[in-house]
Amino acid sequence: MSRTFSLRKVYGPVAWIGIVTLYGLLSALFGDGIWDELSWIALSIPLLVIAWKCGRSV
């Protein structure tokens, strides 16, 4: 039987990506200029995670 992670460990990255996404969604809504740019950066992170994980698939 291989190793088993705790649920806390499994959901850790999920929570971080969730927080970053929500920040990105709201940043552009409540501000312009720099807030739009921060939103683009934040919302790129989940998309880059998908690209990265698919790229280095085992």
């Binding site: 088993t4 992670f5 649920l7 499994v10 959901y11 850790g12 085992v58």
Partner: peptide, 20 residues
């Protein structure tokens, strides 16, 4: 889906895609 994700992923690293 998010709730079943946890139990399904307990033996896999985050974001594992098993191409083989």
């Amino acid at each position: 889906g998010a709730l079943v994700y946890g139990p399904f992923m307990r033996q896999l690293d985050f974001g594992t895609v098993r191409r083989s």
